[in-house]
Amino acid sequence: MKTLPDLLHEHAFFKDMDEDHLAFIARCGENCIFNAGDHLARENAPANDFYVIRDGRVAVESYVPNHGSICLQTLQSGDIFGWSWLFPPYLWTFDGRALDEVHAVRLDGKCLREKCDADPKLGYALMKRFARIVTDRLHTTRVQLMDVYDQQKTSLDSGK
């Protein structure tokens, strides 16, 4: 059976991370399984956790009255879900819902924050990884905003 450090080690988010740091982080974690439809997170609820998705798909959603949930993005194996635990007030800004059976490692946010404060080297290594995830997500969102599949953009160039 694989240990938690093994599982983290295999995940893209922790690729090339220092073994000691991984073992240290793993002490804040536990394995968890969600069934399709289960929520990993609810908007405005306390954000105490950070999920390393090993298998299955997670939808990042927001609920719109008279409409239902709008899915902004789907995450899958190799992704991570949740960074609201990083900054006060530690509340989820979106819903996270399992689209099928999701296997993940749940890491305790408070525990991680304390470890990062105590060991700035670990903190920096982890924050670099989060910064990468955030810029990737921002990039994706920007491309999404561009409506890149539209073949019929109106010309903005006046020709002057």
Binding site: Q151, Q152, K153, T154, S155, L156, D157, S158, G159, K160
Partner: peptide
Amino acid sequence: TGDFSYISGGSVRAST
């Protein structure tokens, strides 16, 4: 001419 390079939506060479 403006429409010489027109593809759906607008001209590729819109500027002089």
